[in-house]
Design a binder for these strands. Structure first.
Lengths: 166, 166
DNA sequence: GTTGATTTGTTACAATATAACATCTCAATT
DNA sequence: AATTGAGATGTTATATTGTAACAAATCAAC
């Protein structure tokens, strides 16, 4: 576990990642789809911390495990994980992050810290309700959405000690 | 003016684009920055309709006017126009759209129609207020944001006649 | 008209993503 | 056990999007 992960939110990240993986596994079983080795490895790599991960970084990281891995290997796994709702694409970063609410149907707010680079998926019913009203007013039927906020997270605001950034 | 533009919202698009260009010109004068020929041409091309335009499409379209144009030509102009707040990047499309509120400080909702491909920038104080509250609650300091909603716009919902796509 | 800052030209390349087709795997059926 | 068919992966090639770095030109201010 990296320092920056600990800054993000004091939490047991082993538990965090285990929950994500076992839930994903259960859901795949229920849905009759295969969580293959590659797909599970990509999901684990994405959940390694709370940063958004780039596809080609995943490619490098999976090569020790899958020496034949090519871009298509990663993008296929990412497509699968997105279809199953296990990960989100962070559009404004061209990167991917684990979804921490596998029950809820659609994406919530993504709070992206410029300092520690953690991405927090946050529920915000008030925002979603206001948004739904606004869309109704506009006569717009939403299919999917991306709400991405860039800034400085609470932890980084409080602690000015340098987080372990690149 | 394309059919799909007319579907978007019955409006005088010449007026629409003229307003955008003259306002941009005024703001540049006020700010002491140069709206050069290239920058103005790119802005005009972006305002040609209400679609989000891709950088390399802009490059093709500007070549008759700027035969020496290269990718950097476009990206520099786009950078300038974004810094000045004249255009937005649509993160989920890797594309760019004119900003129709040059006074307001930051980006509002972008409603992106999958059918006619128009992008409507919409103000939604209720959403922004709810968002501000939510961010305050999270202790998150926002620097910039992207709120992009994909779906079907009111006009396309009402009229099922095929819009002039692609 | 010289100077300094800004803008543009130009070449090369990095980073992100997909298409297309071959091969493999594995379970269900014959 | 062999066949088959669907899904997954291997593989090559290429498309798309974006940036770095440095040279040349332009333009405003002095």
């Amino acid at each position: 576990m990296s320092d920056s992960t600990e800054l993000f939110a004091p939490h047991n990240h082993s538990l965090c990642i285990n929950t994500a993986l076992t839930t994903a596994s259960q859901l795949c079983a229920e849905r009759g789809v295969q969580l293959t080795a590659i797909r599970q490895q990509v999901l684990e790599l994405i959940w390694a911390d709370h940063h958004a991960v780039k596809a080609y970084d995943l490619l490098e990281r999976i090569k020790p495990l899958q020496s034949a891995a090519k871009p298509a290997t990663i993008y296929r796994a990412l497509d699968f994980l997105r279809e199953q709702g296990f990960i989100h694409r962070v559009e404004s970063l061209n990167a991917f992050v684990g979804c921490n609410d596998l029950k809820s149907a659609h994406e919530q707010l993504l709070l992206i810290c410029k300092r520690c680079e953690n991405v927090e998926e946050r529920h915000a019913d008030s925002v979603m309700q206001a948004l739904a009203q606004e869309l109704a007013l506009a006569g717009f039927t939403a299919h999917h959405q991306a709400i991405e906020i860039h800034g400085i997270c609470a932890t980084c605001t409080q602690s000015n000690n340098t987080p372990s950034l690149n």
